[in-house]
Design a protein around this nucleic acid. Structure first.
Lengths: 343, 343
DNA sequence: TTTAGCACTCTCGAGGTGAGAGTGCTAAAT
DNA sequence: ATTTAGCACTCTCACCTCGAGAGTGCTAAA
């Protein structure tokens, strides 16, 4: 069951070859193209056992071999040589991030970047921030009984929501209210997620003699839980997936793209499987999401000022250049962390 | 060249049948299923001429007929019976809009609504607003030399941008500045699009003795031109397109979806072809955009308080139920107008 | 003017075939 | 003991044929 060195070499060769050509790999190809100093027959013999042990499989008896999920897994864990991005690629990435963009645009650009660099689907999960400071709360009257509330945190995150108010509210009253809240709350080191009780107490004092803000608690909770941003996913490169030869049958494609359209399902799946390590690779059937079991997912977490905030990833066919995917995803997530931390 | 009454009836029948079955329509089917009191041979004869005149075509000699773009056009302009939405469908739409949502979410919901109701791709172009009033400008310091600027208009539109500032700026200074600008500008009936010169003069007075805001002009121009929103497109239902039988070949699908991924190209195409009338139907090759020449596009403009603001639309195969598409698009755009006008 | 009848054309799926690819196995070579 | 050459074997794939079926265009009769 333990692979000997030669088997590992051959497995690596098969994976490498299959990744580049998308064609089943025959023993003679390995013998010819990879200088292993072995005849096709010998390689064939080893491949026979690699198949027995479930690292390879054949689409049919007279075809070459294709790595199984287990084969890819072994490759990723033990055989893969880590690649690094070329200097000009690094420069390009940095260049793109150079201009100051607001959060939304940064997310969008990141997904485009991933899709372009990897030729797969680029996925970016917006940051969930646990300990932002409230920098500013604004209440702006819109119409006669609606209030647009805007909360800005120190990381530059902007939450907005339109709130119905039961009574009439004047502009002055509102600015008085926001000043009051701003003085109480902003710039204090408050963990927003656990803030609700404190906040409510504070607000009760303020609001009890103020107009009745029916929905304000709910809204503030929403904002502070960042529900509005929590589920935001940015995707780019759906067509890349379609261009992959393994998905040239419409049925398979349909299957995958249907889950891509359900962005939130995809996002939650990614979120759930984020582990302890920065970068994670999920290969084929390792995923619990059936629709992407013919795909692999390479994810990498990013930070804001050292604290985990979100994740980016790449979704493509299991036949992907894992080494390159990992370097790209890691490098981009590092740069993204830098950018977001600068805010 | 002028179609007689019987030809029109037959054309209508062919279109109706083809729309529902997606199969070429034979003369005998028409004879059997549509009570025209004519034999297959007679119908066949008329269909022969309908083909000569380019209203129908045959995929091959022993197949039934399919409407051409010209055939659909004639059908839409002259033969189609206007359908109305069922009461429960109307109710459902109203229900969905009932909760107060902010602009972004309203747009998103609208595209989902369109996609769900039509089983095609739902497209929503965000409003371009020409004569909003500036309700509020806020400058919020983020980090030591960055300023988050937020502009809110009376329609509830929120523009935000992060601006680099060359020097250090204190919070008090900023709030002084925003107060100054707010007092000068908000609530005045200013056409934002043409505002730049006036605004610059005003700002010059204010800013000349303020910190140097290097980029503020550009930013304000951006905001006032609503560039940030201008190109925003909301799409939903990409998979609907894939499920259409006419696109079950990956190549065709690829072609179409590639343009769908380039959301802005699609949006600009829609924008360009918006005519004088509320609702417009673009059938197949009538579109200048090659990628969607096997599709039809039904668009309808929506208003904000009576002024044209944006458009929504449905993209699907030319074989679509035009009557239903038009009713849906018109009804939804009306409701959207109502909602956005309420802000 | 309409229709029945019929020859004609074309598609589509089933079935057959042979070349080619790649295997597993075996016996010989190293 | 390991490696390799040789070969029979299996399977795919592209290509062909063929006949059924669909739907037509045309013609002559109603």
């Amino acid at each position: 069951m333990e692979l000997n060195k030669r088997m590992k070499t051959i497995l690596a060769a098969v994976v490498h070859r299959y990744i580049t050509t998308a064609e089943p790999v025959s023993s003679s190809i390995i013998a010819k193209e990879y200088n292993l100093d072995l005849s096709a027959a010998t390689i064939r013999h080893e491949m026979y056992w690699l198949e027995k042990y479930d690292y390879l499989w054949q689409p049919h008896i007279s075809a070459g071999r294709i790595p199984t999920d287990k084969g890819y897994r072994f490759y990723v864990d033990n055989l893969m040589i880590k690649k690094y991005l070329k200097e000009n690629e690094k420069r390009e990435i940095i260049q793109i991030y150079k201009k100051n963009k607001e959060l939304e645009e940064t997310m969008k650009i990141t997904s485009q970047l991933l899709s372009k660099l990897t030729n797969n689907l680029g996925v970016v999960l917006a940051p969930i921030i646990y300990d932002d400071l409230v920098r500013n709360i604004q209440f702006i009257p819109v119409g006669s009984n609606r209030v647009l509330t805007i909360i800005v945190t120190d990381t530059g995150l902007v939450c907005q929501k339109l709130i119905n108010v039961s009574g009439e509210i004047t502009k002055d009253r509102l600015s008085y209210l926001s000043n009051l809240i701003n003085n109480k709350l902003t710039e204090k080191d408050i963990n927003i997620i656990n803030l609700n009780k404190i906040l409510k107490d504070e607000l009760d004092k303020i609001l009890s003699f103020q107009e009745r803000f029916n929905y304000i608690y709910n809204f503030l909770e929403d904002c502070f839980n960042f529900k509005s941003l929590k589920n935001k996913v940015y995707l780019d490169g759906r067509t890349n997936i379609m261009r992959q030869p393994e998905f040239n049958e419409t049925i398979k494609l349909n299957y995958i793209l249907s889950i891509i359209e359900e962005e939130n399902i995809l996002a939650n799946t990614i979120r759930k499987c984020l582990g302890f390590r920065k970068t994670k690779v999920i290969i084929g059937k390792e995923s619990k999401l059936k629709e992407i079991q013919s795909c692999s997912l390479v994810t990498s977490k990013y930070n804001i000022r050292g604290k985990p905030a979100g994740a980016i990833g790449v979704l493509g066919p299991t036949r992907m250049d894992y080494s390159r995917m990992i370097s790209i995803v890691e490098y981009v997530s590092d740069k993204l962390s830098d950018i977001l931390s600068e805010f």
